[in-house]
């Protein structure tokens, strides 16, 4: 017999390949250890490092299969119960150490409703969303006069007609031609939803003249009858606030980003409703008030009462906002 064992001890390949062979030789049953040894001998004659890696992984697979083949499992009630218990314990342990894998997007009783749209997360959908954003960003923004005269009054009238049909503004809205969906999206993309410094709480039942005056202010793209902004000091940081004349707000994900939503807007350590990476095509409906933060403001679009208000800001910009109802516009204690 050739001195195979001595050779084996001296010539074990270094590095990861040697480690894989070491694991394989320990894993293989005694009657099959000679075959693992032969495969280890053969690896020194294989050209190419990647091929040697593949050979070592194949050796490990061979040893694992031989080990599994030697296991003799006879099903008895006790063993079945033991196996079931171990499986349950493994799942519970995994959920304890990796809670992110088991976190459901829907949390009962927290007022958050997650809608997975029919648009699946595919490369085509992501590309389509990215292309739409680029197309909208490439369009030159309309001037303030254009917005005030043409687009914004139509949006305001359309929103007033949809939200509060019994209001006096509804009669004026009938005489205004409806704006196309494309023009509306262009106007919203041209001026993202950036909260201004002054606090003006507008109501949906105001006249179209007052809405026209508000719309010509510093934040032209936001329909003033649906949302407004103030600033708050929460946790030592200045956080902008959006005041909505609605009970809930809909957040539509355009591109993948990290989203965190907290229920208690006045408490930085409030109840976390959602904190994970959201994907394009997902839609979240939050009952107000909530605090929202994301690392890509352009990836999120706000919809209130069926009216799309545009993105939360520029693409790639970090955003943190308070969403509150109009009747509780001062959430600070």
């Amino acid at each position: 017999m050739t001195p195979r064992n001595e050779h084996h001890q001296d010539e074990r390949p270094p590095g990861i390949i040697g480690l894989l062979f070491s694991i394989a030789s320990r894993l293989a049953p005694n009657e099959d250890s000679a075959w693992v040894e032969e495969m280890e001998f053969e690896v020194s004659f294989i050209p190419g490092r990647l091929r040697r890696y593949g050979w070592a992984i194949g050796t490990l697979r061979f040893a694992s299969m031989r080990r599994i083949a030697t296991l003799r499992w006879r099903s008895t009630p006790g063993r079945t119960a033991l196996a079931t218990s171990l499986a349950i314990a493994a799942v519970v342990g995994f959920s304890v150490f990796f809670p992110q894998a088991f976190r459901s997007p829907f949390t009962p009783g927290t007022g958050i409703v997650v809608e997975q749209q029919s648009l699946p997360e595919t490369e085509e959908s992501v590309d389509a969303a990215r292309f739409r954003r680029q197309e909208l960003a490439a369009t030159p923004p309309p001037s303030a006069d254009t917005l005030a005269d043409d687009i914004v009054p139509d949006v305001v009238a359309e929103a007033a007609k949809e939200v509060i049909p019994a209001s006096p503004a509804a009669g004026n809205a009938d005489s205004v031609d409806p704006v196309s969906e494309h023009e509306r999206s262009l106007a919203q993309a041209a001026a993202p939803l950036e909260p201004a410094g002054e606090a003006v709480v507008a109501r949906g039942n105001e006249s179209s003249e007052s809405s026209r005056a508000d719309a010509s202010s510093s934040r032209p793209s936001v329909p003033q009858d649906l949302a407004d902004s103030v600033s708050n000091e929460i946790g030592g940081a200045k956080v902008d606030e959006l005041v909505f004349d609605a009970d809930q707000v809909e957040v539509v994900v355009v591109s993948a980003t990290h989203l965190k939503v907290i229920r208690n807007t006045t408490d930085p350590t409030g109840q976390v409703l959602l904190e994970r990476k959201v994907m394009p095509g997902e839609t979240f409906v939050f009952a107000l008030p909530v605090r929202l933060s994301s690392d890509d403001a352009g990836a999120l679009t706000i919809v209130v009462d069926g009216v799309e208000l545009g993105s939360l800001g520029n693409s790639g910009a970090t955003v943190e906002l308070l969403f509150t109802r109009a009747n509780e516009s001062d959430p600070t204690p």
Binding site: G54, G58, T59, R61
Partner: peptide, 11 residues
């Protein structure tokens, strides 16, 4: 064939 499969056959 892969090395694991091959040596299983050889064995």
């Amino acid at each position: 064939l892969g090395p694991g499969t091959l040596y299983g056959v050889l064995k």
